[in-house]
Design a binder for these strands. Structure first.
Lengths: 146, 146
DNA sequence: GCTTGACCTAAAGTCAGCTTTATGTGTTAT
DNA sequence: ATAACACATAAAGCTGACTTTAGGTCAAGC
């Protein structure tokens, strides 16, 4: 069993955030002893899932909904599974987006590297939009894909 | 040359957002003809960079700062390069985080798949925390890494 | 016995990033 | 000429996710 302070350190989350999560109903099983929250390994696990779902782009009220389902037994298994499938697809899409972002960032790093060496952007501009060095061209095209 | 409406369609961004970006100084070269904004290919390119930097986690005011640097000639090349290097590192870190999130999501998909088949979570609980099927164990461990 | 520190609540405040509202201008179609 | 459109502004409003504030309880150490 853990106090809110211990959980705060464990997850590097402010105490106020944990209380806010509790207020929002994200810990449906959280018990108290004379008013004081008692976190168990179950809440530690819950918090891991909260962080995961948050990172996946889910809103607090949707996470609450999921936690609610978890208290409703086996008939909500399909709902819960569908939620995770959906989040999985969303995160895969997000990663794909970020790879494209990364291509443009990498291109821009080369761009300014070159500009610093040349003292200006003229040489690069002369190569745009499709006579860049092979590797760089690939990044540039990938970033401007749609 | 494009009107704000054309740019809005091109980027699937509301007109209000484009006006907001302009108000925030994100288009330092944007010209007007009798009050009406005239977007050129330069602004199209700027908008691509805005979207990229936004996806990388940069705030509007930092993007504005970057756009300011772009108007200040070659002496800001090093600043601009450092910005992109930093954003590149941030996006790489973000992708790594999302891969971990993805591992937990994939694990949870298996979890509910199994729970649906079994009609309960007992079988899975008996395997936790380190007697899961090999592939699944790898996902689980990866997700709970720190 | 009194201060310190960790816990508690309810309610108000903050912040970024838009979005909406209210109002107005200028060109094009009927 | 009048309605419909696409543009414009300034200012207020919205949303989600916290965070801060103001006030209180309770156990432990000096």
């Amino acid at each position: 069993m853990y106090t809110i302070g211990q959980i705060s350190e464990m997850f590097h989350l402010p105490i106020s955030t944990l209380r806010y999560y509790d207020k929002e109903g994200l810990f449906p099983n959280l018990k108290r002893e004379s008013g004081i929250r008692k976190f168990t390994d179950r809440e530690v696990e819950t918090l891991r899932v909260i962080e995961c779902l948050k990172q996946s782009g889910l809103e607090i009220r949707e996470i609450k909904q999921f936690m609610q389902w978890c208290t409703e037994g086996s008939r909500t298994y399909p709902l819960r599974k569908a939620l995770f499938e959906g989040r999985k697809a969303a995160v895969e899409a997000e990663i794909a987006e970020l790879q494209k972002t990364l291509a443009l960032l990498t291109y821009k790093c080369w761009y300014y590297d070159t500009a610093i060496q040349d003292g200006n952007e003229d040489g690069i501009r002369a190569m745009l939009p499709d006579h860049l060095p092979k590797e760089i061209q690939a990044l540039y095209d990938r970033a401007n894909e749609r």
